[in-house]
Structures are given as C-alpha cells and as structure tokens.
C-alpha cells in the first residue's frame, strides 16, 4: 500500500504531529467503518445482532485512547465499536463479530455489544448499563496491588449516571486512590429519554465533588481537548494521585440502536441533529490540521483511500468467514 507523504512538522500545537495525524486517522477509521456497517444494516440486513452506532462521538474514544498503552485496560459498553478500534482492536475481527462469524473477536458468541481484544487491553464490553464501571475499578485495584503504573478506563454513557453502582464505584476508587479514569460520554439521550428527564442534576461531572475527586466537563467533539484532559488525568493516575471523572459532551447522530436517524419518532428535532452535525468532530479536526499545515488535500485523500480499503477488506473478510459450528454450543462455559 502506498504510504502518504510524511507530514510537514510546522504545527504550532504542543502535541506531536504524529499523534495528531494518528488521531485523525483513527477517527476516520471509526467513522468509515460504521458508515459501511450502517449501509449493511438496512433492509434486508446482513447483520442480525443489535448494533449501537457511535457515529458523531468518535473524538471521545480516540482522544482518550491516544493516551493509553497496550497494557492499560479499557472497559466498554453496548456502544463499543469506537472503544474497540481506538484501543487497537482488529477491524476484520470486529466486522466478523457483527456478522456472527467464528472469526469474530468474540468468536461469534458476543455480537456488537460484547467485543474483546485482551491482547490490546480490552477485556470486554458489557450491555448492562454501568456494568463495567466496577470492573474498571477492580482492574485498577489489581494494578495498584501489583504496583504497576497502568491505568483502567471506564467508558459509559449519561444513562449510567442513573445507576447506583456508578456512585459506589466513584467512592471506592476515590477511597483507595485507584488509577481509574471515568469517562462519561454524555450524548444527551439515555435510549429515548433526554438526559434532563433522567437526572435531577444534569451536570454529571459535578458528582465527582462528593467523592473528593476531580471532575470536569469538556467538549467531547473536540478530540484535542479530550486528548489533553484525559492525558492530564491519566498521567496523574499513573503517579498514584487517584481517579478522575471527565464528562464529554457529545451527540449520537443515529438512533439508540440501528442505522436510522429516528427523526420520525418525534424524540428530537432535525434542527438539533443538524446543529450537532455541523460540529462533526472529524470535519472540525480536519480543518484544524489543515490550518496548522499538518495535512494537505492529497494526504487527506490518501488517508481516506487507505481507510476505505481497510473497511472494504474487513467487511469482505466477515462475509466470507464461516459461522460457528453448532456442535460448539456447549464449549467454553468453563475454562
């Protein structure tokens, strides 16, 4: 594959150009993969399992994971494609899992909501709202007991702030100063319910105050802001300074589940969606990179082409892969 020309290192950002361009490519991979999946979810769908698309929220997963090492753990949710790809998970295995194939990252046992890539620090994603928050606390406990400077990241949505285990987890993490970062992806909707219909106080970041933990709210569509804020929290956690809560304001372009925008359901307005689409994290970052002289039109096109090829190959791989053998049904309940 033809490599894009080396970017000119003229950017004024304090973040290294390689990191910035890496985040750009990573967001584009998430977007293009999911756009291709959305096409294949339309009737008649090739994919049967419930699929929760991350479109519009890419800056959060990418900005956070760009600070992580392979050994750091990321715990994800039902909306897990972004976290999986941003942490290093293989795109072919992801596509195959959505298709229910034996070559999938969970061998066809999990589907879209249950993705794992343990070799990249992704031990699994859970479809129980807030279910993985205490798991991240536990992984951080393991790192802390072993005196390693790894961190654990819990990604969760605004809906998880309605669950008691979220508060229990903030408390335990703060109490023991554990290296865990709580990343709330506030996309303004808990399935069909606007966040204001769920939470008496919608400032989720302020819950951290009660647990003597730093809490901030940032623009979750600005990948550089997410990168910097998560970077600060992760660095502090590595030094043993304890956990942090970062609320990333973002927006779910498509419906709670499936490929549609669900504007006909009367849950949100077209104006609202349009205004968030103009705040597209990828388009805005692309403009920033261009303004910084970090990417040319030719380079943009090259990245785009490479990602298109990768996505096409992943889907072709998934379609060509075999389904699990039904004789496998009882295998692996126990080790």
């Amino acid at each position: 594959m033809k490599q894009a020309a080396k970017p000119r290192r003229t950017g004024r950002s304090d973040v290294a150009p390689d990191v910035l361009l890496g985040m750009y490519r990573s967001m584009l991979r998430l977007r293009k993969f999911e756009e291709a999946i959305a096409e294949r979810l339309k009737t008649p769908s090739e994919i049967v399992c419930p699929v929760h698309l991350y479109t519009g929220e890419e800056a959060v997963a990418v900005g956070v994971c760009a600070n992580l090492r392979k050994e750091d753990f990321v715990f994800s949710t039902h909306r897990s494609h972004g976290h999986y790809l941003a942490k290093g998970g293989d795109m072919k295995s992801l596509a195959a899992e959505l298709y229910g194939k034996t070559t999938g990252c969970s061998h066809g046992r999990g589907g879209s909501m249950h993705l794992a890539a343990p070799e990249y620090g992704l031990p699994g994603s859970s479809a129980i709202v807030a279910g993985t928050i205490p798991l991240a606390v536990g992984a951080a406990l393991a790192f802390s007991v072993r005196k390693e400077d790894n961190v654990a990241v819990a990604f969760f949505g605004d809906g998880a702030a309605n669950e008691g285990v979220f508060y229990e987890s903030l408390n335990l993490a703060a109490l023991r100063k554990l290296p865990v970062i709580f990343i709330c992806e506030n996309n303004l909707y808990s399935t069909h319910m606007p966040v204001a219909s769920c939470l008496a106080s919608t400032e989720i970041y302020r819950k951290a105050e009660s647990f003597c933990m730093p809490g901030v709210r940032i623009d979750g569509n600005n990948v550089l802001k997410v990168f910097r804020e998560a970077g600060r929290a992760i660095a502090a956690a590595r030094l043993g300074e304890g956990p942090a809560l970062i609320e990333c304001l973002t927006y779910r372009w498509r419906g709670h589940v499936g490929p549609n925008y669900d504007l006909d359901k009367g849950l949100r307005s077209k104006e609202e969606l349009d205004s968030w689409m103009t705040r597209c994290p990828i388009k805005n970052f692309e403009e920033f990179l261009a303004a910084q002289g970090l990417i040319s039109t030719a380079e943009k096109e090259a990245v785009s082409r490479e990602v298109d090829v990768e996505v096409a190959e992943a889907i072709a791989f998934a379609r060509a892969s075999p389904y699990p053998d039904s004789a496998e049904i009882t295998r692996g309940v126990f080790r």
Partner: peptide, 9 residues
Amino acid sequence: GAAVGAALA
C-alpha cells in the same frame, strides 16, 4: 464487580 475486574486483570 471490583473483584471480577481484578480477576480479569
């Protein structure tokens, strides 16, 4: 959950 997470780690 923390015990489960520690086991996973």
